[in-house]
C-alpha cells in the first residue's frame, strides 16, 4: 500500500510528466490560455492515460515478450485504436462525458506524454495495479501543471507586458518558475 502511494505521489509531484520530463508540452503551451479548457484537457488526459496503462499491461504480458522489436509500433497503434474505440463507446453511453472530453481525445492520442507513459511503465516493470496507479498519478500531474499555468496566464492578460516577451517566451519562463517550485517536492520522501 505504501508503495502504491509512493508511486502516485512521485508521478504527481516529484517526477511530474510536464514539468520534470517535458512530456506533453505542445498542449501545455497551446491550450493553457483558459482555465476551463485546460482543466477539461487535463481530465481527457487522465482518461487516455488510464486506457494506456491497461493497454501497456496487456501488450507487455502477452505480446512483447515474443517480439520486442515491435514495441514502439504496437504501443502507438494499440493505444490510438483503443482510445478511438473507447471514444465511440463513451459517445453512445454518456454523451455528456463525450461532450466534455470530445475534441481533445484524438489530439491526445499521439501526444508524447501518452507514449512516454507506456515506455516508462515498461522500463520500471510495473504490474497491473502499479501501472494503473502510475497512470492516474501521471494524468493528475499533467492536469495540475496545465491548470497552474492556465491560472497564471489568465492573470498575465491584465498586466502590461512588453511586446518582445509576449507569447511562448513568457509561457516558457513561467513554466520554468513553476518547475523550479516543483523541485522542492523532491525532498518529500528522502528521509
Amino acid at each position: 500500500m505504501e508503495n502504491l502511494i509512493w508511486i502516485f505521489v512521485s508521478a504527481l509531484l516529484i517526477n511530474n510528466f510536464t514539468l520534470a520530463y517535458f512530456l506533453g508540452l505542445c498542449p501545455f503551451l497551446g491550450v493553457s490560455g483558459k482555465l476551463v479548457t485546460a482543466f477539461r484537457l487535463g481530465l481527457a488526459n487522465i482518461f487516455v492515460m488510464l486506457i494506456t496503462g491497461a493497454c501497456t499491461f496487456v501488450l507487455n504480458t502477452w505480446v512483447l515478450p515474443y517480439a520486442p522489436y515491435l514495441r514502439l509500433i504496437s504501443f502507438i497503434i494499440v493505444i490510438a485504436s483503443s482510445v478511438q474505440f473507447v471514444e465511440m463507446a463513451v459517445k453512445k453511453l454518456s454523451p455528456e462525458l463525450f461532450k466534455a472530453l470530445g475534441i481533445f481525445l484524438p489530439l491526445i492520442t499521439t501526444n508524447c506524454a501518452i507514449l512516454g507513459l507506456a515506455l516508462f511503465t515498461t522500463n520500471k516493470g510495473y504490474g497491473f495495479v502499479e501501472g494503473m496507479i502510475y497512470a492516474l498519478g501521471a494524468g493528475a500531474g499533467v492536469t495540475l501543471a496545465l491548470v497552474l499555468l492556465a491560472g497564471i496566464r489568465e492573470e498575465t492578460r491584465i498586466l502590461n507586458i512588453p511586446n518582445v516577451i509576449k507569447g511562448t517566451a513568457l509561457n516558457l519562463i513561467i513554466a520554468g518558475i513553476i518547475s523550479m517550485a516543483f523541485m522542492g517536492f523532491a525532498g518529500l520522501f528522502s528521509t
Binding site: 516577451i165 513568457l170 509561457n171 519562463i173 520554468g176 518547475s179
Partner: peptide, 15 residues
C-alpha cells in the same frame, strides 16, 4: 542542467 534550466534557456532564446 535541471528541468527548469531547459524552460529558462529556451524562454530566453525565444526572447
Amino acid at each position: 542542467i535541471l528541468p527548469p534550466g531547459g524552460f529558462f534557456m529556451l524562454g530566453f532564446l525565444l526572447l
